[in-house]
Simulated scan of single mutants.
Amino acid sequence: MGMWELVVVFIVGLVVLGPERLPVAIRTVSRWIKTVKSLANSVKAEVSEELRVHELHENLKKAEQQNLQDLSPELQSSLSELKQAAESVTHSYKKQPQESEPNQQIDEKK
Rank of each mutant, 00 (worst) to 15 (best):
M3C: 10
M3A: 09
W4E: 12
W4K: 11
W4P: 05
W4L: 14
W4R: 12
E5R: 14
E5Y: 14
L6C: 09
L6G: 09
L6R: 14
V7D: 04
V8Y: 06
V9T: 12
V9N: 14
F10C: 04
F10Y: 09
I11R: 05
I11D: 05
V12G: 01
V12S: 03
G13E: 06
G13P: 04
L14F: 06
L14Y: 05
V15R: 11
V15G: 02
L17D: 03
G18D: 02
E20Q: 11
E20M: 07
L22N: 00
P23F: 02
A25L: 03
A25N: 01
R27F: 05
V29P: 00
V29R: 14
V29S: 12
V29F: 15
S30E: 15
S30W: 12
R31N: 08
W32A: 12
I33V: 13
K34M: 07
K34T: 13
K34V: 12
T35R: 09
T35G: 09
V36H: 05
V36N: 03
K37P: 00
S38W: 07
S38G: 01
L39T: 06
L39M: 06
A40C: 02
A40Y: 06
A40D: 01
A40M: 06
A40S: 08
N41K: 13
N41F: 14
S42Q: 13
K44H: 11
K44E: 14
K44N: 14
E46V: 08
E46Y: 08
V47Y: 09
V47R: 10
V47T: 07
E49P: 02
E49Q: 14
R52S: 07
R52A: 07
V53Y: 03
L56K: 00
L56Y: 01
H57A: 09
E58F: 02
L60R: 01
L60G: 00
K61L: 08
K62Y: 10
A63I: 04
E64W: 07
E64T: 09
Q65A: 14
Q65F: 06
Q65T: 13
Q66R: 15
N67W: 08
L68E: 00
Q69H: 08
Q69I: 13
D70N: 13
L71T: 05
L71P: 00
L71G: 05
L71Q: 06
L71D: 09
S72H: 05
P73C: 01
E74N: 05
L75R: 05
Q76T: 11
Q76G: 07
S77K: 11
S77F: 05
S77A: 08
S77W: 04
S78D: 06
S78I: 01
L79S: 06
S80E: 13
S80R: 14
K83T: 07
Q84W: 01
A85W: 01
A85H: 03
A85C: 00
A85F: 03
E87V: 11
V89H: 00
V89D: 01
T90V: 10
T90P: 02
H91P: 01
H91N: 07
S92T: 00
S92A: 07
S92R: 09
Y93L: 11
Y93I: 07
K94E: 10
K94G: 03
K95V: 03
K95Y: 04
K95W: 04
K95L: 13
E99Y: 01
S100Q: 15
E101A: 10
N103V: 10
Q104N: 10
Q105L: 13
I106L: 15
E108I: 12
K109L: 15
K110G: 15
